[in-house]
Simulated assay, not measured.
Amino acid sequence: MNCESIRELVSVHGPFVSVYLPSDVVEWNVLRHCLSVQDADPAVLAALDDALGRGTAAGRGLIATRDGVLVDMSPAWTPHAAVARVSDLPYLLPLVPRHAVRAPEASLVAAGRAREDAVSGSGDRTVFDQFMFESARPEGPVVQGVGRCAAALRAGNADALVIVEGALRDRAVWVGGTHRDQVAEEEADLRALGMPVDHQRADEALPMAALVVGADVLVAPEDLPLTDGVGVLLRHP
């Protein structure tokens, strides 16, 4: 599933239930109980019961609200463990592409074609290669770390958000109420703008902010050394 396919979720209001079942080892009933403990809406659980009752549950990712099941598909990559969350924002990372890091010379060649490929729509692999190439340049238009990446997203200065798989864990950021593109590492950054703020999971809030500002969202392998496990390819230096 590409970013354009999930971008429509930016206008949907939660709470969201996000479920990813990597294998038959974890039964839906176990995850259902976890969601109930998190005060999931019974109507949403019933909708998930119905969806998962059709076909094999293993290898599926589902996102649901009170309006029903919005996403029911195979994830782009499989999380190490089953996921069952209730939150104000959906957990989208398993739905977006995960890319291996190429050798530097391969990224260099790909980056040289980046603009041409972007016009022709060749996809997010080129965007990731461009991120890797620019990250290696001392003056490349890339920032790393939760604080700097959040600032870039707030300013709408982001072509792509790259998150290392599993790096953000339970880390949280601040979100400016219904302004989903307004994210910050420090609460004061949003309070200064006169916004109501909420504390949200970074692995949900940062991808949502990226989608709102029109940026791509990509997942990198666990061994990519990014500060805080997150980086942004800027639209302009």
Score class of each variant (00 low, 15 high):
residue 2 N to K: 09
residue 9 L to I: 12
residue 11 S to G: 11
residue 15 P to R: 03
residue 16 F to I: 05
residue 18 S to N: 01
residue 19 V to M: 10
residue 21 L to P: 09
residue 23 S to E: 11
residue 23 S to N: 13
residue 24 D to V: 09
residue 25 V to D: 15
residue 26 V to R: 04
residue 27 E to G: 13
residue 32 R to T: 05
residue 33 H to W: 01
residue 33 H to K: 04
residue 34 C to S: 07
residue 34 C to Y: 04
residue 34 C to E: 07
residue 36 S to T: 09
residue 37 V to P: 04
residue 39 D to P: 00
residue 41 D to V: 08
residue 44 V to G: 01
residue 45 L to V: 10
residue 52 L to C: 07
residue 55 G to A: 12
residue 60 R to F: 02
residue 65 T to W: 07
residue 66 R to G: 10
residue 66 R to D: 12
residue 66 R to M: 07
residue 73 M to A: 15
residue 77 W to V: 13
residue 81 A to R: 15
residue 83 V to A: 04
residue 83 V to T: 10
residue 84 A to P: 04
residue 93 L to M: 07
residue 93 L to T: 11
residue 94 P to H: 09
residue 95 L to A: 06
residue 97 P to I: 13
residue 98 R to S: 10
residue 99 H to N: 09
residue 101 V to Q: 13
residue 101 V to C: 09
residue 101 V to W: 05
residue 103 A to Y: 14
residue 107 S to A: 10
residue 110 A to R: 13
residue 110 A to K: 11
residue 111 A to G: 15
residue 112 G to T: 06
residue 115 R to D: 12
residue 116 E to S: 09
residue 116 E to V: 06
residue 116 E to K: 09
residue 117 D to L: 03
residue 119 V to G: 04
residue 127 V to C: 08
residue 128 F to N: 08
residue 129 D to L: 03
residue 132 M to S: 07
residue 132 M to F: 00
residue 133 F to D: 12
residue 133 F to S: 05
residue 134 E to P: 02
residue 135 S to R: 14
residue 139 E to V: 03
residue 142 V to I: 08
residue 147 G to I: 02
residue 148 R to W: 00
residue 158 A to E: 12
residue 158 A to C: 14
residue 159 D to E: 07
residue 159 D to A: 15
residue 165 E to Q: 14
residue 166 G to I: 01
residue 171 R to K: 06
residue 173 V to R: 05
residue 176 G to V: 07
residue 180 R to M: 12
residue 180 R to H: 09
residue 183 V to P: 05
residue 184 A to T: 11
residue 191 R to K: 12
residue 192 A to R: 15
residue 197 V to Y: 04
residue 200 Q to G: 09
residue 200 Q to C: 15
residue 201 R to D: 06
residue 203 D to C: 15
residue 204 E to I: 01
residue 204 E to K: 00
residue 204 E to Q: 11
residue 205 A to F: 04
residue 206 L to P: 06
residue 208 M to A: 07
residue 209 A to E: 03
residue 215 A to E: 03
residue 217 V to F: 04
residue 220 A to R: 06
residue 221 P to F: 05
residue 221 P to R: 14
residue 224 L to M: 12
residue 224 L to K: 04
residue 230 V to N: 03
residue 231 G to F: 00
residue 233 L to I: 06
residue 237 P to W: 03
